[in-house]
Design a protein around this nucleic acid. Structure first.
Lengths: 135, 135
DNA sequence: TTCTAAATTTGTAATCATTACAAAAATAAA
DNA sequence: TTTATTTTTGTAATGATTACAAATTTAGAA
């Protein structure tokens, strides 16, 4: 994936900060919060401002190359994947797993005549590993 | 529904404020925010504090008689219904509709060996009425 | 009932994420 | 090079939530 080109294709001028932020989102795929992104990039970009992270993510969302998820209240996370998919969050280790689900299975029969723009599925519990480790 | 008794059954002493807050949640079923609850009750309980609303809702959640939903980032809402069900929010009029869905349909095959505690399904779009009114 | 202890409510201050905004820096165009 | 535009940055403002201690209410014991 050529990130600069991907940004350009979506009408986003590929500045250094924008490339780095998108690169982080895309390569880590770890559903980071703004704070996590900032802390991970400020070493490499010492002048980086949190404002830039906020601005950039807002731009990415406007242009449709990033989506948000809010599993816990007060904890907005960002995702380079924009196709509909769900998220499982382990309440023990905090890890987030992507889960696929079939759009039409999610009670869409209940929403006849409604125009659906976005669906989010969040599941919380304990992951495989934490269960075996008895965390 | 006898609210005082319902609270007592769940190990919550039925104070005046607690009864009123639960009553509001239960009778309106409008998925209110803290602010909405406060504004709607402060007329009847002039000394009511927002702290009380926060404290009370936290207590209700601990005791399992209230659940939260966060469809929009930064907008925590409360619900007297605790069974798994989904929510549709109309982006035009802001109304929230409950939707039933089948727990096991939501990609649970992907989560073998995981312990699932909670699922949330959020759908955004335009409701029937807004579509016909061309809002 | 009266006294005392515990629980609840309240108001204010502190915190934290996010937004607003204007100055500084970088980039592009003339 | 000069000028205009875009992007980045830092600080201040906002708003929701939490922390906390004082005031009030409730419950229990004497």
């Amino acid at each position: 994936m050529n990130i600069a080109q991907h940004l350009s294709t979506h009408d986003i001028k590929p500045s250094y900060q924008r490339i780095k932020i998108y690169e982080y989102l895309y390569e880590k795929m770890n559903h980071p919060t703004v704070d996590v992104i900032y802390k991970n990039l400020v070493g490499e970009i010492p002048t980086l401002s949190k404002s830039t992270v906020y601005n950039t993510l807002k731009l990415f969302i406007d242009k449709g190359i990033t989506s948000t998820l809010t599993i816990e209240d007060n904890e907005v996370r960002y995702d380079a994947a924009v196709e509909s998919h769900g998220h499982f969050k382990c309440t023990s280790c905090g890890a987030i797993f992507d889960i696929k689900y079939d759009f039409k299975d999610v009670a869409m029969n209940k929403l006849k005549g409604f125009e659906i723009k976005e669906t989010q599925v969040h599941v919380k519990g304990k992951c495989n590993q934490c269960l075996t480790n008895k965390n």
